[in-house]
Design a protein around this nucleic acid. Structure first.
Length: 265
DNA sequence: AGAAATGTTCGGCA
DNA sequence: GTGCCGAACATTTC
């Protein structure tokens, strides 16, 4: 679930709770979250260091330490941060203790996320073959790289190598707001449609961030015109009431309104 | 009880 | 190289 808007709010949360604090302890509760790296190496790089800055690229979050290294976080499908006083929350995989303030838990029930350390933030982004962040990409590059070629439009929006940060849920949301069918071909879009899609992509992501994506607040009170909250069986289009349709492709489910997002010719 | 959900990586196919 | 597909990974919820 965590996509660009969620991770942006995790970044802001990390700034509020951990920035300028010194890490006194790192406890790895489940080694699998390190994807083969050793808990000792993580501890050695992080313990005694101060968190000085944060950065987000697509769905990845990095936290800069005062030794020049970066803590890296990916949230997989169920990852999130939580602070606590006494007992760490269930499914805590890594626990960070600070000189002052409450400890921080990296929680990830399904273990698809990851925590690590890297020497170089830029090299990290390159190693993961990530394209520009979805809120940084220019309209020109969006048009040339994301929509270049001839491919399924929804798949193009989710291609992290071309544009980083959009996953299954937000690609559905963007296409719903743009009133474009997920199975349109990228080369079928005209200039005007491309411009509009680019603008709506930014609006959706920004609105989701401001509405608190990734927090309980968002789950309880998602924007009323968003499709996201309706992505479940038996739901209808929040705009016209038509029953939503799904289309499965490569293991992902696309949700869309057959009336607002008519099938390509 | 079995499928579905989600993101990334990887192997296979045209 | 391009584009698409499904499997694998782990876990809980329907």
């Amino acid at each position: 679930m965590p996509e660009l808007p969620d991770v942006e709010n995790f970044r802001r949360f990390l700034e509020r709770t951990a920035l300028r604090r010194t890490v006194t302890g790192v406890s790895v509760c489940d080694d699998r979250i390190l994807h083969g790296d050793s808990p000792a190496a993580l501890r050695k790089a992080v313990e005694g260091r101060r968190l000085e800055r944060t950065r987000r690229h697509g769905k990845h979050l990095l936290a800069g330490l005062d030794n020049g290294r970066w803590l890296t976080f990916h949230f997989g499908m169920t990852g999130r941060f939580e602070t606590f006083r006494d007992e760490p929350p269930r499914s805590t995989r890594v626990r960070f203790d600070f000189r002052e303030g409450d400890p921080l838990a990296f929680v990830d029930q399904r273990l698809f996320g990851g925590v690590g350390v890297t020497e170089n933030a830029r090299a990290f982004v390159e190693a993961h073959e990530l394209g520009p962040d979805a809120l940084e990409i220019s309209e020109d590059e969006f048009s040339r790289t994301v929509l270049g070629g001839s491919r399924n439009l929804k798949a193009a929006l989710m291609d992290q190598a071309k544009i980083a940060g959009i996953g299954n849920e937000y690609s559905d949301e963007i296409l719903f707001q743009a009133r474009l069918h997920p199975e349109m071909r990228t080369n079928a879009l005209d200039r005007e449609q491309i411009s509009r899609l680019y603008r709506i992509m930014r609006e959706v992501l920004e609105k989701a961030i401001e509405a608190g994506a990734g927090t309980r607040e968002f789950d309880e009170n998602p924007p009323a015109d968003f499709l996201i909250a309706h992505r479940r069986k038996g739901a209808s289009c929040p705009r016209c009431g038509t029953p939503l349709q799904t289309k499965k492709s490569a293991g992902r489910t696309a949700w869309f309104c057959p009336r607002c997002q008519p099938a390509p010719a």
